[in-house]
Design a protein around this nucleic acid. Structure first.
Length: 279
DNA sequence: CTGGTCTCCTGATCGC
DNA sequence: TGCGATCAGGAGACCA
């Protein structure tokens, strides 16, 4: 997905188009990408009705936690969007035929929001209130990576024997870090991705927490990373991919010490690191 | 509970 | 040009 910076940039580009405006029509073109938690105590009811998808509602705000984005209405109905690997929320003013793989759309007086997701790893979750979303979906997430400091990160990794990279990718440990920014943050902190999480010293944990915030904040400023699919609400690609230190640069020179960057699978994910800076 | 592996799906790219 | 293999930014299900 889109990791935290991409979702945050999407939130910022989508908000001006829809906050304060009424959703006239909500259409779900593929039911299996949506689940609704309306009307009962779980676990999950599919076949959301248009009202569950905020039809008739006025958008009050967009909330983000980690990589998840919620559209919250003034009547508290909420719709949580997970972008998966290839999800997009695109704003358009022309009412032409939706692009391929558009699974849901919301029509406003001023334009439309289309949810596209070719690979369909994304999902929509509808809840009667924002509190319900937090309770059922967001309460198990770790601290938001953009604001997490050592006091939040330390306890989260203190007892796990997993590789630190695997821990960072776990949304219940810290919310918002994915494969790209895990590698970038570990590089900036000088920590080997295979290092056992609980053996990292408090000083290094502090350095890692700082690195995570730094890397994510920088990427947000650059509009996120676009490798292939990511676009913001206005259809624009990001620019953060041009300043990655290690991600996507296996075999090339380390930007700090010029050692050849190594790559291997860690936690089943492509991982790149500098064998010298991250000993 | 924990941690590792598998799997869902489409599309771009690469080597033959 | 065509075709199969491989690889992608995620995360929930399943298993030992």
């Amino acid at each position: 997905m889109p990791e935290l910076p991409e979702v945050e940039h999407l939130r910022r580009t989508l908000a001006p188009h829809i906050v304060g405006r009424r959703i006239l029509v909500a259409r779900l073109r593929r039911r299996d990408i949506c689940e609704s938690l309306h009307g009962t105590d779980l676990p999950r009811i599919r076949h959301a009705r248009p009202a569950h998808l905020l039809e008739g509602a006025i958008v009050d705000r967009l909330e983000r936690r980690g990589k998840q984005l919620a559209i919250v209405a003034t009547d508290e109905r909420s719709l949580c969007v997970q972008l998966g690997m290839t999800g997009q929320l695109l704003w358009s003013t022309r009412g032409g035929a939706p692009r391929s793989h558009t699974h849901a759309l919301w029509i406003f007086n001023e334009g439309e929001v289309h949810f596209r997701d070719p690979r369909r790893f994304g999902a929509l979750t509808c809840t009667p209130t924002f509190d319900d979303l937090v309770r059922w979906r967001w309460s198990s997430l770790g601290p938001d990576a953009l604001t997490c400091d050592a006091s939040a990160l330390g306890p989260a990794i203190a007892r796990t024997s997993r590789a630190i990279k695997a821990a960072l990718l776990d949304q219940n440990v810290v919310a918002g870090v994915g494969n790209i920014y895990a590698d970038e943050a570990l590089f900036l902190a000088g920590i080997h991705p295979q290092r056992t999480a609980r053996t990292i010293s408090p000083q290094r944990v502090e350095r890692l927490a700082n690195a995570i915030r730094t890397v994510l904040a920088r990427a947000i400023k650059q509009g996120g990373t676009t490798r292939r699919d990511y676009l913001d609400a206005d259809g624009r690609a990001g620019n953060a991919q041009h300043s990655h230190a290690v991600y996507g640069r296996a075999g090339q020179a380390c930007p700090v010490c010029t050692t050849k960057l190594r790559n291997a699978a860690v936690a089943q994910r492509t991982t790149v690191w500098c064998p010298r800076c991250q000993a």
